[in-house]
Design a protein around this nucleic acid. Structure first.
Length: 256
DNA sequence: ATGGCAGTGCCTCACTGA
């Protein structure tokens, strides 16, 4: 079974890429972020995905945010948002697929260290940690996947001299990431790959993709019970090379 | 090396993203 994450930066625009990618890879489960579509528009996509053999569940809003799960297999116990946390922004959807709890999250960007959005990001991450801890107590096999908007280490940026200490790379954000790891999760990509300059996002400006100037901010964190089944984690850069691409590209784990 | 790109929406700009 393969499970992937992809921030599509508007599913309306990227729908052809997503449909092609699912058919090419045969990926079993795909978590999407930044749908930028309200639920009336999302509802119309159910038939599009059904036509190629996938279920589609979504948690959307107009213009901003929005997350979804696409799966070949039945989705059970679907939960939207972080329970017991008031938040109008649609950033989380979770479901159980073949016994694996999949939590798809679009973590707050934060804008800058002096922004109110940065404080929202840190508070939001604390709520996410509480939620994931509770989920792990119920579901031993769990993956927390999505756009974290956090580069965990200096080597996860193309230019540490520019990024270290800035938003996405600040000590409090990295401490929050470590707080998730400390729940017993593993950064599945780093478990297999120690090479430098491996990124999941590249700015649209300045030919950043061609220059290999990116960040690694999209992650799949696996519980220890699930990690025992994970045989690989790879970044698929192919969709980033298409016409009118998302600025993010998919990351995929394969389970035994 | 971030003004410069891209998407959305009460759309000839503002807001958001990372």
């Amino acid at each position: 079974m393969q499970i992937a994450t992809w921030n599509v930066n508007s599913l309306k625009v990227r729908l052809p890429h997503v449909l092609d990618w699912l058919q090419t890879t045969g990926c079993d489960v795909l978590g999407l972020q930044e749908l930028k579509m309200d639920n009336a528009a999302n509802a119309k996509l159910v038939a599009e995905f059904a036509a190629i053999g996938y279920n589609y569940v979504y948690n959307g809003q107009k213009t901003y945010n929005g997350v979804a799960l696409i799966s070949k297999h039945p989705l059970e116990n679907i939960v939207m948002d972080i329970p017991e946390y008031e938040d109008v922004q649609k950033r989380v959807i979770a479901a159980t697929i073949n016994g694996v709890r999949v939590i798809c999250a679009y973590i707050v960007n934060g804008e800058s260290l002096t922004s109110d959005k940065y404080q929202y990001k840190l508070a939001w991450l604390s709520q996410l940690q509480r939620y994931v801890a509770a989920e792990l107590a119920v579901y031993p096999e769990l993956v927390l996947l999505g756009d974290y908007n956090i580069a965990p280490e200096a080597r996860d940026t193309y230019a540490p001299q520019i990024w270290e200490g800035q938003v996405l790379c600040s000590a409090p954000e990295r401490a929050a990431f470590q707080g998730l790891i400390d729940l017993g999760l593993t950064d599945s990509f780093r478990h297999f790959n120690q090479e430098e300059r491996q990124f999941t996002w590249w700015d649209y400006r300045n030919m950043a993709f061609r220059r290999k100037q990116g960040l690694r901010i999209d992650h799949l964190l696996a519980s220890s019970a699930l990690m025992a089944r994970v045989s690989s984690c790879v970044i698929d850069t192919a969709p980033r090379k298409l016409e009118r691409p998302s600025d993010h590209t998919p990351v995929i784990i394969t389970l035994n």
